[in-house]
């Protein structure tokens, strides 16, 4: 029993290094791209590191005695890292405590849960509104994700993280399932137009408003790490079907897969930034309405998958 459970030291090293270093870097690229689209010079690529460094150096203010306020950011960051450990880096999975995609999404959702608990722990309307919006995003995105997983269950016959990309056949419904997954991941990540929970210009940071100094740094870092984890999942789901025709074995094969995963992430992030720069934030009711419509449409796709296309 439990033969499939494993710990890979190399995976832990690669995973920790990537998840620890990459998110601020990617954010830096995104900021540069957005600036260029808006005819600005923009900050240096490493600006997000400087920001985090500064935040980590500052003490935090305490707006409430409630301990959850202080615990939540660390819980969010730890959850994001835990989810990251389930994904393959090349052929190495850091700590495989489950191979199941449902478990993966739930562990990742713990980031949101922690953020929401933190946001509600204070008596601040902006913070509460932010938490409440974050929750409604989770509520409306979850069913879309559920349908995508349903299509994988039909077409690939498995919900295993490592087996879905290996077994998924190229068909009408699987392409749509990928699109649904990409949409859900994008909305979950809170990129514009879905940055409704933070809504910097509207509710002054929403879930982040009461956080300052080091706690704010940890929380922002958790949000960035969560984005990378979702993107890494998508890049894995694309890399393996692309490379599965080629026999990749041994360490070299692992490194090739890792390289392709990394390249896809580096290509995708500027694209996302371009989308962000050219869109305006939705109101929460618009976002919920859009997600509801997509969910209802996706049910049709599920029926198509059940028929066998």
């Amino acid at each position: 029993m439990m033969k499939t459970m494993s710990i890979s030291v190399l995976g832990i090293i690669v995973g920790v290094v990537l998840v620890a270093i990459l998110p601020p870097f990617l954010d830096g690229i995104a900021r540069k791209v957005k600036a260029r689209i808006q005819y600005r010079v923009g900050p240096p690529i490493l600006q997000t590191y400087y920001d985090l460094q500064k935040l980590f150096g500052l003490p935090s203010l305490r707006p409430t005695e409630n301990k959850w306020f202080r615990v939540a950011p660390y819980l969010a960051l730890a959850s994001a890292f835990s989810a990251a450990f389930l994904l393959p880096y090349g052929k190495w999975v850091p700590v495989k405590f489950s191979g199941d995609i449902v478990v993966f999404f739930y562990v990742l959702a713990m980031v949101s849960v922690a953020i929401i608990i933190g946001a509600f722990s204070t008596q601040n309307a902006h913070s509460n509104i932010g938490g409440h919006r974050e929750m409604m995003m989770v509520l409306s995105v979850e069913p879309i994700l559920g349908v995508a997983l349903g299509i994988f269950a039909f077409k690939a016959g498995t919900l295993s993280l490592s087996a879905i990309p290996l077994k998924v056949p190229a068909s009408f419904s699987t392409v749509l399932a990928y699109l649904l997954l990409i949409y859900a991941a994008y909305a979950e990540s809170g990129f514009v137009p879905f940055d409704i929970a933070e809504a910097e210009t509207e509710i002054a940071g929403g879930v982040l408003v009461e956080y300052s100094g080091r706690l704010l740094g940890v929380l922002e870092y958790a949000i960035l790490a969560k984005r990378l984890v979702l993107l890494w999942l998508l890049s894995t789901f694309l890399t393996i079907p692309i490379l599965r025709g080629i026999a990749l074995t041994g360490v070299v094969g692992g490194i090739v897969v890792l390289a392709v995963q990394l390249i896809l992430v580096l290509v995708a992030y500027p694209l996302i930034a371009a989308l962000e720069a050219t869109n305006a934030r939705y109101r929460i009711d618009q976002a919920v309405a859009l997600n509801t419509r997509i969910f209802l449409l996706s049910l049709v796709v599920l029926a198509v998958a059940a028929v066998g296309w």
Binding site: F56, P59, S60, L61, R62, P63, T64, R70, Y74, L77, A78, T122, Q123, N124, H126, S127, V209, E210, G213, R214, L215, G217, V218
Partner: peptide, 16 residues
């Protein structure tokens, strides 16, 4: 995380 980045939130303030 808690050990490497302790919150050091000593000062209290009213919610904004």
């Amino acid at each position: 995380f808690l050990l490497f980045l302790p919150a050091r939130a000593k000062e209290t303030a009213k919610p904004w």
